[in-house]
Design a protein around this nucleic acid. Structure first.
Lengths: 247, 247
DNA sequence: CGTAGGTTTGAGTCGGGTCAAGAAATGTGG
DNA sequence: CCACATTTCTTGACCCGACTCAAACCTACG
């Protein structure tokens, strides 16, 4: 399904570049002119592929790079001392992973591919260097990081104020808008993550997630067959997710 | 209690500066040499005072500045469409407020003084400018922002994985380490916020917070008289808050 | 085709929310 | 400085949403 994005996967033909990447309007170069973009191109390590379940980076290991998702999907999570995992975010094509680690020299979280995923690796050192030389880049980095803060705050709101149904409605809508941003159908898509991951992310038990999905189905809000999801009644979902800004 | 911090409150005598501020090891200048610090000094608008309950900035209003807390305490919160408030953080002296707004030209949250509070106002425009000229400054900004992301992730973990008791233990310990960082007693301090705020922040009902406080008291973990808190059994609190990184 | 994840459904329990009502603390004005 | 008002905090009784435990059912894939 995600394969419909025309990213440069035919690595042999013509060196790929940020300029020609279909995700450039979502990813880093947003504010850069074509000259600056070439500078960015030089430091990016393209064509890194991870299979489902493989770790892109691991909590507490040295922090070297951020990663921009090209295709596929990634989840990030933190492991608590007591050993259990809390998923802190899902990252789709065009989104930048690893910003939470820029305060330290080790990764603050673990990133794992949810499906076969390709990423661009961007060494931090060069990134900071670049941000220093290009004001637009610095501004964009600030932008992305503060966006990340907001997202996390939104998650907190969700976790502390909303019911299971509201949380799930909100997640579905968030995914919907993100698919739309990539010019894909906002009402019919495949979930990149398992029920388990959804439950973990939203602070629920798997069983609860499952129950809510079937409840939504019975109410005619969605149609779900495994990971294949169709949002039937967007309106209803939106009012249900009420005060929940979409990520 | 907080008055013990020798910040420059006698505004008339000698122009105050970042260099002489007792909080400089917590606040912005961390990575700056004295020359750079002078540059910072020039753009900082000192001596802004807010009384308890006054707003430092308001969600959705134009974003112009970040604020470093000099004395007192601030809470930030986001208001959902459905009208209720979610507190996203408490900020103590030496901490920087407003970083979540750097992605937009309007504030992502509202900041309100919990008690009489003095802050340094730092215009963003100049801040970005400064970060651009001073690599150390840029790095420090990245550091602070990613720290903010981590904190927020920690909050998410707390909200989705921990019981009422664990959440409260974690908050108390977080406050404790922050007092300690300022060379104040880590075991005996005044809560800057009301029970209500604690409840809101931790996703609990006020009643629950109250109950847990008295339970802790009965178990001999703390001694609480209103906002006056004494941590009696740090050990026990720490094991209770187990997999919870201290902010 | 068989095994292992992943997903769904049911039954029972409990942590923490809600509602209600005092008790303290804090503020206000005369 | 005191009487009153208002907010904040505490305690109790009750209830419900979501968790746990348990078991069956898919579906993908070697």
């Amino acid at each position: 399904m995600n394969q419909s994005i025309p990213v440069n996967q035919v690595s042999s033909i013509s060196k790929s570049s940020c300029q020609h990447c279909s995700l450039s309007n979502l990813c880093l170069p947003l504010a850069l002119d074509s000259d600056d973009m070439n500078r960015l191109d030089e430091v990016v390590n393209r064509d890194r592929i991870f299979n489902r379940g493989e770790q892109v980076f691991t909590q507490s290991t040295p922090f070297r790079s951020c990663y921009a998702v090209k295709s596929g999907a990634i989840k990030t999570s933190v492991i608590t001392e007591s050993g259990d995992e809390q998923i802190t975010g899902f990252f789709m094509p065009g989104e930048l992973v690893g910003l939470d680690s820029m305060s330290d020299d080790t990764h603050a979280s673990t990133a794992k591919a949810l499906e076969r995923t390709s990423v661009c690796e961007i060494p931090v050192e060069q990134l900071e260097q670049l941000a220093h030389t290009l004001p637009g880049m610095q501004h964009h980095m600030f932008h992305l990081m503060s966006q990340e803060i907001r997202n996390s705050h939104q998650l907190s709101v969700l976790l502390s104020k909303n019911t299971a149904e509201e949380r799930i409605a909100a997640l579905l809508l968030s995914l919907s808008t993100r698919f739309q941003r990539r010019k894909l159908s906002p009402t019919h898509f495949n979930l990149p993550m398992a029920r388990n991951d959804i439950a973990n992310f939203l602070g629920l038990a798997v069983e609860t997630v499952s129950r809510v999905f079937t409840r939504f189905q019975n109410q005619g809000l969605i149609r779900a067959r495994g990971r294949d999801i169709e949002l039937v009644d967007l309106e209803a979902l939106q009012t249900m997710a009420q005060g929940t800004a979409q990520t």
